[in-house]
């Protein structure tokens, strides 16, 4: 896996590889060519405008885990023709989080999945707005946005799923839920002897990690970040 640290504003082209990404800059453009896997795992406060451009025939799997103290994050995803993009975005937050993800399907024969899972704790809250736009005179595009927020505090969180579609030859779906921890899950783990605190931690990390298509080593890294709070 190649490690890339982007510490200043610039355009970075990623080609045919798996990348461990670390973004320190506030305005970044990623150009994707060929088959690319990105993994990004970080504990931070984030203020980011990230534009991802998938060139023709490109495929992207982007697993993003963040442990936020605060975030104002805008991700723009532009897809040309015959591309596939999967953004698995999980985050745990202790502070205010404003997350915008705007996929734009400009061409034809594109597949897009936006999977967002967030957990709020302490003073954390989330406003998650995903606005998918399918351009005029396009065909055979498939888009899915799936957004879930798990509340473990009493702060208010919001999901705004927008679908702006200007083509009839398209399949566009969305799902959005906000819920607390399932009491049956909690009871089950407690019947095995786990305390409420340990059971809650397991459920939170399982909820977030379950959204990511990553190997055990990365899972352990995330658990260490969550456990070290």
């Amino acid at each position: 896996m190649n490690k890339i640290v982007i510490d200043r504003e610039k355009i970075v082209t990623l080609k045919e590889n798996t990348y461990e990404l670390e973004i320190e800059a506030e305005d970044v453009i990623l150009a994707i060519e060929g088959n690319v896997i990105i993994e990004e795992i970080k504990k931070k406060e984030e203020n980011l405008k990230l534009t991802i451009i998938l060139k023709e025939n490109a495929n992207l799997l982007y697993n993003r885990f963040m442990y936020y103290s605060k975030a104002n994050t805008f991700i723009k995803l532009e897809q040309d023709n015959n591309t596939k993009a999967i953004l698995n975005y999980s985050f745990l937050t202790n502070g205010e989080c404003k997350i915008n993800v705007d996929p734009l399907l400009k061409g034809n024969y594109n597949n897009t999945e936006i999977n967002i899972k967030a957990v709020t704790q302490n003073k954390g809250n989330v406003i998650a707005e995903v606005t998918a736009e399918v351009g005029e005179n396009t065909k055979e595009n498939h888009f899915l946005e799936d957004i879930h927020i798990l509340l473990t505090n009493e702060e208010e969180s919001v999901i705004i799923p927008n679908l702006l579609v200007s083509s009839s030859e398209v399949e566009v779906n969305h799902a959005a839920t906000i819920s607390g921890i399932n009491i049956d899950d909690l009871f089950y783990l407690k019947t095995k002897g786990l305390t409420e605190k340990k059971a809650t931690e397991l459920i939170k990390s399982g909820f977030l990690i379950g959204n990511l298509d990553i190997k055990d080593q990365e899972k352990r890294k995330i658990k260490e970040i969550i456990g070290g709070e």
């Binding site: 407690k190 019947t191 459920i203």
Partner: peptide, 24 residues
């Protein structure tokens, strides 16, 4: 006593349809 305290004393239940827990 709490559920976990009872479990740690040695009580355990198997229900008719054990639930699945994602990510654990």
């Amino acid at each position: 006593l709490t559920t976990s305290e009872r479990a740690n004393l040695g009580m355990m239940m198997i229900s008719q349809n054990p639930i699945a827990i994602e990510g654990v």
